[in-house]
């Protein structure tokens, strides 16, 4: 068989031969990073809501104690998972769970991968969401309480929608980081893009060509995701027009007002 001699020759050859491998790897990377980011986001929301429950005089002492213990546990979770590399977490969790018999030969590796990315992301998200909650002025929460809403109701209905909008750029960052950093999961043999690339490079020992392709795929993924998230942000901002319904002279009139000083999107 005639092997290619130029860089582009090799790229074409490898794509032809290992195209499906790259595709599978890309699919797995997307699956892990997307699911991991979403679950991590949900973990972050829950942690942030729990950590912001106010302690009041009406709370009984055991409830206060429980709340304190919960706060300490959540802080430990955040510190541990932000303070150690994901590659190390992957090793500890995977082999730990293996030794403890929680997972075995039959456990699908992608599930383990998603679990690791999720709890890692959750720790970061908890802090990002806490920042988002702080960014919403506390007057709105007071107003919610003043009409009788509970902590949960005011969080879900008023504070979090605005907090989440404010932290969308950071959430996007986390997603991009997860797309790239899920590559470290190759240490536990998750068949994501980096792992697949290594297999593809091994046969002909064309590391440069293979990983150039891999780099381009990562770049296309992250660039697309960034653009898509910008669209989501625009969507969340809603329209910059509103209608005034009815005027003094004509109760049926509808006037549409467009903000001229709308923020550049």
């Amino acid at each position: 068989m005639q092997l290619p001699s130029s860089f582009f020759g090799w790229v074409g050859f490898l794509l032809d031969k290992y195209g499906s491998l790259f595709l599978q790897g890309t699919g797995m990377t997307l699956l892990i990073s997307l699911t991991g980011t979403i679950i991590g986001f949900l973990i972050g929301l829950l942690v942030a809501i729990l950590r912001t429950i106010p302690v009041t005089r009406r709370m009984s002492t055991p409830v206060k104690g429980l709340k304190h213990v919960l706060n300490v546990l959540l802080s430990i979770y955040i510190e541990v998972f932000r303070g150690t590399p994901m590659i190390v977490q992957a090793m500890v969790i995977y082999y730990g769970a293996m030794q403890a018999g929680i997972i075995g030969r039959g456990t699908p590796i992608p599930m383990v991968a998603i679990f690791i990315v999720s709890i890692n992301t959750g720790a970061y998200m908890a802090e990002i969401i806490r920042g988002g909650i702080i960014s919403v002025d506390k007057g709105q929460k007071e107003a919610a309480h003043a009409i009788g809403m509970s902590h949960w109701q005011s969080m879900v209905g008023v504070v979090l929608p605005q907090a989440v909008r404010n932290i969308m750029p950071s959430i996007g960052n986390e997603f991009v980081v997860n797309i790239k950093d899920s590559s470290v999961l190759n240490v536990i043999a998750v068949s994501e893009l980096f792992f697949m690339s290594k297999s593809a490079a091994g046969t002909y020992l064309r590391y440069f060509e293979v990983f150039t392709i891999t780099a381009v795929i990562y770049l296309v993924l992250t660039f697309t995701v960034t653009r898509l998230l910008r669209l989501v942000e625009r969507k969340m901002d809603g329209s910059n027009t509103y209608t005034i319904c009815g005027s003094q002279s004509d109760s049926q009139s509808v006037i549409t007002v467009t903000e001229t000083n709308a923020e550049e999107g």
Partner: peptide
């Protein structure tokens, strides 16, 4: 919650729900 619902409050800085 019941008490809050029966005692309304209007704030200096309006505090409307911006969302």
């Amino acid at each position: 919650a019941e008490y809050h619902a029966k005692i309304g409050m209007v704030f200096q800085s309006f505090n409307l729900f911006n969302n």
